[in-house]
Nucleic acid binder design. Structure first.
Lengths: 140, 140
DNA sequence: TGTGATTGTCAGGCTAGCTGACAGTCAGGT
DNA sequence: ACCTGACTGTCAGCTAGCCTGACAATCACA
């Protein structure tokens, strides 16, 4: 392994992300969802019922991307789109009962995957790593 | 921002990677290369002259991906492919003089970008973050 | 009323990466 | 010397993920 490369942040972040993504998706496959879909379920479960655009903004994706994401989740009966009576341009997107179950199981699964992924670090180092990442990503 | 989401490792890693990638590419654009291409230059500069396949392995990409990457870099006159006299199946890939200059400038630029990216962390926390990432990604 | 903004949707394009095939070349056994 | 199998670079074609630009329906407000 090239020593120069493994000290470049870009390389390390890319490969860390890719590796965690692969492991998460493999584990989540048993529940019939992937990491991106689980993230949508999480967003929809927190806070008030959201329009598609609000959900997209919270997740940090484009609203046109959210359309396809919800198409899949709706087809799996994990979320439901209903027209907002107060603003007929909007859809209110909510978890179904099956969606809430998938959310719980998915979170448990990815918790376990994260723990294994961070296993090379001490408990303390893992916490610091998480904190540093959050400080870098979450504004202010 | 959804509090649940910002404590998921997958979300944080993905957005950290994406943000650093965008900043690096913006800064590197002045030198006519992007982050992926710089990574190839780094790989080629470290260790002995490599075949395309060795370079691909060191970089962690597929050999078919390396073909396209080198096509671009060769067209920019930053690398040169020459047939290996000891094994005519192989190409020996090396940096040109312009490639070495681009490498130096690119590394300097991304060093600066990395520093800005890690600015929210203390010097000490940034070092620990780097170390943790390396421990997670680099095998053994 | 009507003018501009907003929402969900879709078509099309782009990037990055993979798989599978191919010709050319090498190595080892017979 | 030959043959079989493995390896190298290359290309075509596919997929996933994401974006831009357009559109109709709807809203807000002068």
């Amino acid at each position: 392994m090239s020593p120069e490369l493994t000290s470049r942040l870009g390389y390390l972040l890319k490969h860390a992300q890719e590796q965690l993504r692969a492991r998460s998706n493999a584990a989540l496959a048993h529940h019939g969802i992937d990491g991106r879909e689980l993230a949508v379920l999480i967003v929809l479960a927190t806070g008030e019922p959201a329009s598609q655009q609000e959900a997209a903004a919270r997740l940090g994706v484009d609203r046109t991307t959210m359309v396809a994401l919800l198409d899949v989740l709706e087809h799996k009966d994990l979320v439901a789109r209903t027209p907002d009576p107060h603003d007929r341009r909007r859809n209110v997107v909510e978890l179904t009962a099956a969606g809430r179950i998938a959310l719980q199981r998915g979170m448990k699964t990815t918790d376990e995957v994260e723990r294994e992924f961070l296993a090379p670090l001490s408990h303390r180092a893992a916490d610091q790593f998480r904190g540093a990442l959050r400080a870098l990503v979450v504004p202010d």
